[in-house]
């Protein structure tokens, strides 16, 4: 996908035009007017080059469809075991939550909480909130909590670490394959697909445009 950067710089802040929006860059505070973005384009700051916002192709339908697939894959990835280890006739498998549980059993509840929150709870909250927000806007439903959820999704974003967990799985697969037989489970295949769908749906979820649609509180 080719992303063009379109930024319109105005000489004076007083200048006004109907379809241009005044934005301050969140990284350098530079004021600039940005015209309506064509689908598939990203606007970057004139001053620091930071990303202002994008207008993803597919409107609300594409992220909504991707969010539903993401939720289904998330459920599969969490229910079925990721992998099974076989050593001398004994076998042991683990799910995502099982990995966090290992810390709890080793008397480290704080670490268990960190792992569980970053790999299961936060992603679940982000996926469900995205779905709820998109469905409410797409079907013009007047349900409560859309704004609150959008605020929290923005704040939680850095703490969802499924992609980092994926790298962790790869590293431990290499580590374990040296000492025992490892079988990949259904959960792992779902988890790999989940990473792709989650990333794709997150890339098409643009809070800036969603806030524009919501507008000021009445």
């Amino acid at each position: 996908m080719i992303m063009d950067s379109i930024v319109l710089q105005s000489n004076s802040i007083m200048q006004n035009s109907t379809n241009q929006e005044l934005i301050a860059c969140h990284e350098c505070d530079a004021l600039q007017r940005v015209g309506r973005l064509p689908p598939g384009c990203v606007a970057h700051c004139i001053c620091c080059g930071g990303r202002l916002y994008s207008n993803p192709k597919g409107g609300l339908d594409t992220p909504l469809a991707l969010s539903i697939s993401t939720l289904i894959l998330f459920l599969v990835a969490n229910v079925y075991p990721l992998m099974t280890l076989n050593v001398a006739g004994q076998s042991k498998d683990t799910t995502l939550t099982g990995a966090a549980w290992a810390f709890y059993q080793a008397h480290m509840p704080e670490l268990a909480a960190v792992v569980w929150l970053t790999s299961v709870v936060t992603p679940a909250l982000i996926i469900c909130s995205n779905l709820y927000i998109l469905a409410c806007l797409r079907f013009r439903l007047r349900l409560p909590g859309v704004r609150t959820l959008l605020v929290w999704v923005t704040r939680l974003q850095p703490w969802g670490m499924m992609d980092v967990f994926m790298l962790g799985i790869l590293v431990s697969l290499v580590k374990l394959s040296g000492m025992a037989e490892v079988k990949l489970g259904a959960g792992l295949y779902a988890f790999i697909a989940l990473i792709f769908f989650f990333t794709a749906s997150a890339a098409r979820f643009e809070p800036h445009l969603l806030w524009q649609r919501l507008g000021a509180r009445k």
Partner: peptide, 8 residues
């Protein structure tokens, strides 16, 4: 995460 998976 690697430690969690290994320990599990």
């Amino acid at each position: 995460f690697v430690i969690a998976i290994m320990a599990a």
